[in-house]
């Protein structure tokens, strides 16, 4: 637990619609997830498909309550942009982690876990564990 503050979740996709929809979906499926700060960072700043470092930084800042920020991404430039921002050191809030998880399932697991007041490591572990849920 982390002093009552909730871990923030950032969802980075090449598509603004995908990021926003997965954020809505994760909150809807998590029941009590309404209080969890979740921010989408989808597409480029000009509204195209791609990744915007500025949107990612702004989203991370907007969900930072002091308990850490878990960032989930789709693929390619979304992953690389977050990694590059983390390597810069000062572009994202302290205790921001890129989480290695499937985008949709990981987002749901992260939001549900964060809603319980779990700390960043627990949120990260829950999202990563979503990889192990086989569908066949």
């Amino acid at each position: 637990m982390s002093d009552g503050e909730l871990v923030g979740i950032v969802l980075v996709s090449h598509s603004a619609e995908v990021a926003a929809s997965v954020a809505e979906l994760a909150k809807a499926l998590s029941g009590g997830g309404g209080a969890v700060p979740v921010a989408p960072a989808g597409g480029t700043a000009s509204g195209g498909f791609g990744t915007s470092a500025e949107l990612v930084s702004a989203a991370a800042a907007s969900v930072d309550r002091g308990a850490g920020v878990a960032v989930l991404t789709d693929l390619g430039s979304a992953v690389l942009t977050v990694k590059a921002l983390l390597a810069e050191g000062d572009e994202l809030p302290e205790r921001t982690r890129l989480v290695d998880a499937p985008f949709v399932e990981g987002a749901v697991a992260a939001v549900v876990t964060a809603s319980t007041g779990a700390d960043l490591a627990a949120v990260e572990a829950a999202a990563e564990e979503a990889y192990s849920y086989r569908k066949t």
Partner: peptide, 21 residues
């Protein structure tokens, strides 16, 4: 490098940005 990371929008942005930074 910082400009490339923040303006390119594709994977080449963080890659070239990291190279130059």
């Amino acid at each position: 490098g910082r400009q490339l990371i923040s303006t390119v929008g594709g994977a080449s942005g963080p890659l070239y940005g990291t190279l130059l930074r």
